[in-house]
């Protein structure tokens, strides 16, 4: 009996959290005729996958998806390549510099994007990187770096220093010790950071909006926003279908790393 109010409350939450998602799915499955009717229904009268096919038929969207993939992969690998040595150094050495660096990671969260994107934009204009995917990759690395650094140095710290020292005592050099002892233990953390960086870049909208002006180089989020043209309602179905498909990579990767991300956020929140 005591449980009844609790279940009622849980139901309210399920409805609030779920209804926009259900509506997105429902819109994606509706025919253009049904979209035009003035009495929208939760469950499509004649469910169709035509909207998904239509989304794939849009040259813009497929190309944008591929460009997003290239940018996200490049950003993820570059972020980890830049962050890993720094994370190792920060986790292993004590001192003022370390505290400054970790403080920086936290402080950088407070600063609004505008203070980062304007200078980057000015530098990129000098280097002719505006409107290029390479330019966007550079910006994505910049904005993912602090959190990637935070995640990675946590993983390095969880590898006991004694293991590394034991390997050194056994006659392995410092590099050998790192490669054969630390690297395998660090691999899951590196993968998690790669996936996190990939999601950040794949989902990112604002920096892409500033850097990419030409529709021919736009990434998926930008193309999605441009998708609803003056035709209005008729294009909402394919838009919903494309939005769902754009979410799939993030959703899968997120499912893999969410446990690690949760503990990372927890550490950040408690220490912050």
């Amino acid at each position: 009996m005591r449980r009844i109010p609790q279940y009622a409350a849980l139901l309210v939450y399920l409805v609030f959290l779920g209804f926009p998602l259900v509506w997105l799915l429902s819109t994606a499955l509706k025919t253009p005729q049904e979209m035009a009717s003035l009495d929208p229904a939760w469950i499509p009268r004649e469910p169709t996958l035509a909207n998904f096919a239509a989304a794939f038929g849009e040259q813009d969207l497929v190309g944008a998806g591929l460009r997003s993939l290239v940018v996200a992969l490049a950003s993820a690998f570059l972020t980890v390549a830049v962050a890993l040595p720094a994370a190792y150094a920060l986790a292993r050495y004590q001192g003022v510099l370390k505290r400054i660096a970790l403080g920086w990671v936290l402080v950088s969260q407070v600063f609004p994007f505008i203070l980062i994107i304007i200078p980057l934009f000015m530098v990129m204009r000098e280097l002719d990187l505006v409107n290029t995917l390479a330019g966007l990759v550079a910006v994505h690395v910049t904005f993912t770096l602090p959190f990637a650094l935070w995640m990675l140095q946590g993983y390095v710290r969880s590898v006991p220093r004694e293991l590394e020292e034991a390997a050194s005592v056994d006659g392995a050099g410092r590099m050998r010790a790192i490669v054969s002892v630390v690297a395998p233990l660090l691999a899951p953390g590196v993968v998690a950071t790669l996936l996190f960086s990939f999601i950040s870049s794949w989902n990112e909208f604002l920096f892409a909006l500033v850097v990419l002006k030409d529709p021919d180089v736009m990434t998926l989020p930008l193309t999605l926003v441009r998708f609803t043209g003056p035709e209005g309602v008729a294009r909402l179905g394919p838009l919903a279908a494309a939005s769902l498909m754009a979410t799939i990579p993030s959703l899968i990767f997120f499912a893999i790393i969410q446990r690690r991300l949760r503990s990372g956020l927890m550490a950040g929140a408690v220490k912050g």
Binding site: L10, Y13, L14, L17, G18, F19, P20, L21, W23, L24, T27, M35, L38, P40, I199, W202, N203, F205, L220, P221, L224, V225, V233, L236, L239, A240, S243, L244, A246, T247, S250, L251, F253, F254, A255, Q258
Partner: peptide
């Protein structure tokens, strides 16, 4: 179910969240 559902917005691209709510608030559809 609630736990999974509560995590979904975290993984969604902000653009998709915005477009989804535009569909929810659409005056006709």
């Amino acid at each position: 179910v609630a736990r999974v559902l509560a995590m979904v917005p975290w993984a969604m691209p902000p653009v998709v969240i915005g477009l989804m709510w535009r569909l929810v608030y659409h005056p006709d559809a």
